[in-house]
């Protein structure tokens, strides 16, 4: 996991947002930078953040294992997050999820609480359920990478997926 000069520069900018004796506050911003660049966070990444912030690696690893938004395994080229929570479920998100898996060729049968992400065989798509994406009036909703989509019924899935190559 290589850290580019640009990424290092951005990391220093984030560190400057917090008091000098509170560098640890920059943990999440730095982890987000790494994950954005590499797709997930590995041991080297954890060590790099720890070194940047003068903290022990365990203080970084405990964040990676706690927060659902941080990953320790590589997702697909495009990572899909389908909202699972009540209003979206009432609007049919379970059907949406099933359709995504069918169209993208993803098998979710091995998914567990600790490994919530399933990746397609060709590595192009990965998917997981997300807990409430805060758009309950327009469910089912999903995020593909950073792109947000509303009213994604099972019927619209195939067309949506085609946008991603």
């Amino acid at each position: 996991m290589e850290v580019s000069g640009e990424l290092n520069k951005q990391a220093n900018e984030y560190i400057s947002h917090y008091p000098k004796d509170q560098k640890r506050s920059a943990s999440l911003p730095l982890l987000h930078l790494l994950q954005k660049e590499h797709g997930y966070i590995d041991e080297e990444g954890v060590n790099w953040v720890a070194e940047k912030l003068d903290i022990e690696p365990i203080n970084v690893l405990e964040l990676v294992t706690f927060y659902p938004g941080l990953r320790q395994a590589a997702p697909g080229k495009y990572h899909i997050r389908v909202c699972r929570t009540l209003s979206c479920a009432m609007a049919g998100c379970y059907d949406t999820m099933e359709k995504f898996c069918e169209v993208a060729g993803i098998d979710r049968s091995k998914v567990t609480h600790h490994n919530p992400i399933a990746v397609s065989e060709d590595g192009k798509f990965s998917i997981e359920f997300a807990e409430c994406l805060a758009s309950c009036g327009t469910g089912p909703v999903c995020l593909i990478g950073d792109d947000f989509y509303e009213s994604v019924k099972a019927d619209n899935v195939a067309e949506l997926i085609e946008k991603y190559d």
């Binding site: 947002h17 506050s25 999440l28 911003p29 982890l31 987000h32 964040l63 706690f66 927060y67 659902p68 938004g69 941080l70 997300a130 807990e131 409430c132």
Partner: peptide, 10 residues
């Protein structure tokens, strides 16, 4: 004012 992003925890 600084923006600080969370990581998906309610």
């Amino acid at each position: 004012i600084f923006v600080h992003r969370g990581a998906g925890a309610y």
